[in-house]
Amino acid sequence: MIPQQGVILYGPPAAGKDTVTAALTKLDGRYGQFARLKIGSGKNAGYRMGTSEHLRNLEAVGDVVYANSRYGNTYVIDRPGVDAAFAAGVPVVHLGQIDGIRAVVDGYLADWAVVLLWCPREVTEQRSGARGDSDTVARLAAWEATRKDLDAHPDTGWDLAVDTTVTSPAESARLIDQLLVQRAGMRRHD
């Protein structure tokens, strides 16, 4: 059986994860952003909001694939949520931690294409300001944490790396889609 395909987009805040995901969805409606479970407050668009009790219940049955805390909230990639995302098509998971990539790749059986989206710190600052983020300082701290994460894990094997300051969202989406098509073709011939 050919494993289902998913995409992991890794990169600092404002590297273009949302924008590239929107371009992927426009290119092919099977792509869809995985809505992480968010325990906390603030922005709820693009998330499934949950409670601490919900998180404890998921943990109790081993259904937390990965969880991290940032911006005063907890963000969860949960097995039932990933199951539902695969049932709907090709999930696109956004991550900012290499530990999260490893947890998803090792903890949920699928053919995950791991893509690095990158932009310099000053671009994160400009994009964050332009979109009206009220927490740009925290996003710049997250950019620094992402840079340190990359430096600490030089052995991370990217299936594709994209500099979003020189590659358009549409071209990034085309490259990602092409990668998945190629991988599916290789699996059929193995």
Rank of each mutant, 00 (worst) to 15 (best):
P3C: 12
I8C: 05
P13Q: 04
A14F: 04
A15T: 02
A15Q: 02
D18L: 02
V20M: 00
L24R: 02
D28G: 05
D28N: 11
G29P: 03
A35M: 13
I39R: 02
I39Q: 01
G40P: 09
K43A: 13
N44K: 15
G46P: 08
G50E: 06
G50D: 01
G50F: 02
E53N: 13
H54G: 12
L55E: 05
R56E: 11
R56K: 14
N57L: 15
E59I: 07
E59C: 10
A60F: 09
V64Y: 00
Y66L: 00
Y66T: 02
A67M: 11
G72S: 06
G72Q: 09
N73L: 03
Y75E: 08
Y75Q: 07
D78K: 05
V82Q: 05
V82A: 07
A84V: 08
A85G: 00
F86G: 05
A88Y: 06
V90C: 05
P91N: 11
V92C: 00
V93I: 09
I98V: 10
G100P: 09
D111T: 11
D111L: 12
V115S: 00
C119H: 07
C119I: 12
V123W: 04
T124L: 03
E125S: 13
E125N: 14
G132E: 06
G132N: 02
L140R: 07
W143H: 11
A145L: 11
L150H: 01
H153P: 02
D155F: 12
T156I: 12
D159N: 03
A161P: 00
D163H: 06
P169Q: 01
P169M: 07
A170E: 15
S172A: 09
A173I: 01
A173P: 03
R174D: 08
I176Q: 05
Q178T: 14
L179A: 03
L180C: 04
L180M: 09
V181Y: 08
